[in-house]
Design a protein around this nucleic acid. Structure first.
Lengths: 129, 129
DNA sequence: TGACATTCTTTACAAATGTAAATAATGTCA
DNA sequence: TGACATTATTTACATTTGTAAAGAATGTCA
């Protein structure tokens, strides 16, 4: 569990998502994976990754010539951190308005609405019991 | 409408929320309002506010000795920006999982779930038509 | 056992952000 | 009309973030 809420910058999100999809993985692999989208050089990518290690977002382990990276936080933890940040600052902690704004703001397909409805129903059951 | 999505730092959120609640208002009024929570001096608060004016988040108008501030973006716009940021980075644009994570992550009361259910129902109607 | 290709390490620098001291300007009231 | 209190302006500095060049180290294959 994390004491301080996890907060990631845009660049950090890009990197950690690439890591989640490949871990364990090398820095060159990540830079290559992200190059099309970011144009980052190896230096840039590597610097980011090492800073993320320092922050406890990634873990690094040296293996011979190369360093192997893996995530130190799960996707769910990071998602939660991001959500809580928004909840706290943009919605003053009020969850319902936030869900509302979200539902209203995006083009939701009927099937998605069904899924959400089902989710809420099951949630209600859980709460009731 | 805004071309570039609105993104606010934590400090900026604090300020703009205080402004929304009081506008038009002076910088000293904002620093006073936030002091208990932030300990910011007048200088700090003022610097922030002027930078926010430069970014187009606030508007300033000089009136005699003092400057009067007001917001240049609405609360809804800012909330949307924050939500879209999270949606894009943390959930790769997938709205349903985001709502799901949100619903699962907070202690929602039965009444809130009811409200959400109603919201989804009305949304479904809108989509269908 | 070298030459190469790959990977790493160090160092740097600009922009953005958080924070504020010092100083100047200006209404206002006695 | 001057002294005070209030507000504003300028300048500064540390930290974080984004970006990367230059050079050093090292595994590998001919």
């Amino acid at each position: 569990m994390h004491q301080t809420p996890i907060e990631l910058t845009e660049a950090e999100w890009a990197i950690i998502k690439a890591v989640w999809d490949r871990e364990p993985c090398s820095a060159p692999a990540i830079q290559e994976a992200l190059f099309a989208a970011t144009q980052w050089t190896y230096s840039t990518t590597r610097t980011m990754m090492d800073r993320m290690v320092a922050k406890g977002l990634l873990r690094a382990e040296k293996q011979g010539k190369m360093t192997s990276y893996r995530s130190a936080v799960t996707r769910a933890e990071a998602q939660r951190g991001e959500l809580l940040y928004t909840l706290k600052h943009a919605f003053n902690g009020a969850l319902t308005p936030m869900v509302q704004c979200l539902i209203e703001s995006g083009p939701l397909k009927a099937s998605e609405l069904d899924a959400l409805e089902a989710l809420i129903k099951s949630r209600k059951k859980a709460v009731k019991k």
